[in-house]
Amino acid sequence: MLVASDLVRRYGDLTAVDGVSFHIDPGETYGLLGPNGAGKTTTISIIAGLIPAHSGTVTVAGQPMGPREVDAKRSIGLVPQDLAIYPELSARENLAFFGRLQGMRGKPLTRRIDEVLDLIALSDRAKDATKEFSGGMKRRLNIGIGLLHAPTLLILDEPTVGVDPQSRNAILESVEALSGGGMAVLYTTHYMEEAERLCDRIAIIDSGRIQAEGTRGELITLTGGLDYIRLTGEGQIEAAATALRGLDAVVQVVADRRLLTLTVRDAPAAVAGVVTTATAAGMTLGEVEIVRPDLESVFLHLTGKALRD
């Protein structure tokens, strides 16, 4: 569906995209997960043919993509990170305008606009100028325009930034529905939960490079697949640490005054034994916390930085 090879894009001395390659299969939802400034929007701008790459190629549905290519652009629907709607026009007029630019006309266009308005829950506000819309409504319309012509590849650039939790959930649900309907989706975000929830495969991007790529499970094994158990308490903490080191499931124990951090295999299974052993050694437990690795810890592991700033 989409093949991007060795994309490079520089701004002055800064290489915003530095050799990015990936592909998306038909019907697949692919995530680009990375912090602000990682190069997500620049990558997407090249893929959607908004700006040229300094080197590298993109093909969409087998056709070469670039700023002057027309055919490849028929296959894509872009939802830009910054709102891209006309404030003076109503929701319906915005949809109709971009629909016509996509080559749709007449009855089929009207019918499709109604469908999309329904999908983004704006049917009852269709006639209002969008400058009167709330942030969430604008975001929904922004997405609606991108999928109006039923593209085979929908490109969403951080569609939930600055959106209230309710609208956010609605957006995530509609993306899930779309990919369920067979549309390929390229989704960028700096929210790890969104990438985990939506994406079949995820690329972790930082400093313009893809640091790792795979399914959620594959990425997590990169950290070694180990969990953490944190114990806080009083009493015989040193003795408890020694006793815990003897357990099979425990790989490592770090003691720091009242806190013991255990690196363990399969924390949910090991936690009962850990608690019994620590108590038996004379430690009075205050809190017990299980920490399982997520994409956040993968990112930390790969880049030494937190995902969110």
């Binding site: 701008s45 002057r68 830009p80 709102l83 891209a84 006309y86």
Partner: peptide
């Protein structure tokens, strides 16, 4: 400025 240029450029037409 209003971001619509990005979308216009993604439409199937010559810039």
């Amino acid at each position: 400025e209003q971001g619509t240029m990005a979308r216009l450029r993604s439409m199937p037409m010559r810039p």
